[in-house]
Design a binder for these strands. Sequence first.
DNA 1: TGTAGTGCTTCCAGTCGCTGGAAGGTCAAG
DNA 2: CTTGACCTTCCAGCGACTGGAAGCACTACA
Lengths: 144, 144
Amino acid sequence: MNIGTAAERSGLPAKTIRYYEEIGLLKPDRTDNGYRDYSVADLHKLRFLQRSRSLGFSVEECRQLLSLYDDKDRESADVKAIAQAKLAEIDRKLAELAGLRDMLRHLVANCHGDDRPDCPIIDGLSGEAAFVTGGGCHGKEERP
Amino acid sequence: MNIGTAAERSGLPAKTIRYYEEIGLLKPDRTDNGYRDYSVADLHKLRFLQRSRSLGFSVEECRQLLSLYDDKDRESADVKAIAQAKLAEIDRKLAELAGLRDMLRHLVANCHGDDRPDCPIIDGLSGEAAFVTGGGCHGKEERP
DNA sequence: TGTAGTGCTTCCAGTCGCTGGAAGGTCAAG
DNA sequence: CTTGACCTTCCAGCGACTGGAAGCACTACA
């Protein structure tokens, strides 16, 4: 398939797809007229790139993960180690994202613009403390 | 607190923190000697920036979310609309991330380098299809 | 009271990951 | 056989940092 179709189906702009080729993330065939020709496997890689890039993985990380996809010897220890590390990172990201969601939900639901200190949202924003139930926002901020 | 401490506690490099100030994401006080002086609220914002940037939100999105944090009139409709939109996006990201995790897990656990077609991992990579149980990898790829 | 060392400041240059635009070739429809 | 959509390469620019130089500030220790 042509780059336009691949772009549409992967959710990536054609420009970006060409860039990914330039930096060696995938190598589509070319038809006789010089057009890039994407296989279904290429499309899967592109979709994967779209996903993982939008979730904050770097291009180099994506390259490693793609090598996992390509690697004919996926049983090798180092490749498995990469996958395990990424799994841990994904779990971390999942927790952070869930925290972000809870904080935003709380922000929308519970904050009424009053002036009480010890605002639970401030704790929520930091991503460190458990939520304190109730309470308003915009508390005076101490400067330690 | 000084920028070094803020960097350590937020997980952001000092360089990045200065950059965020330059583009107007936060405005720490200055002590008499010209050093930046970060409040606890500043630190929370920095932690929030660290989290949301690493999860794939753009700086402009972060700016909007921070305005939610700063806004004294958080009840206004547009601010709430921003929060709702972000909530939806976070839910989408959560689903994608979970999909990515499942795919990686599957890749590590079930792929033994054989040559069977219809590889479930390929479907998993694309993020579209449900996993087919069993099956190996490295299937022949058709070019449509 | 020096002075070494660490940390802060600004500024400027460079990198990564795209993104837009120009100039031109290809292809299907009318 | 022209129109218009789509493809090509190339080059420039932007967003988001990142590294390094030059210099001021603070702390510690002889």
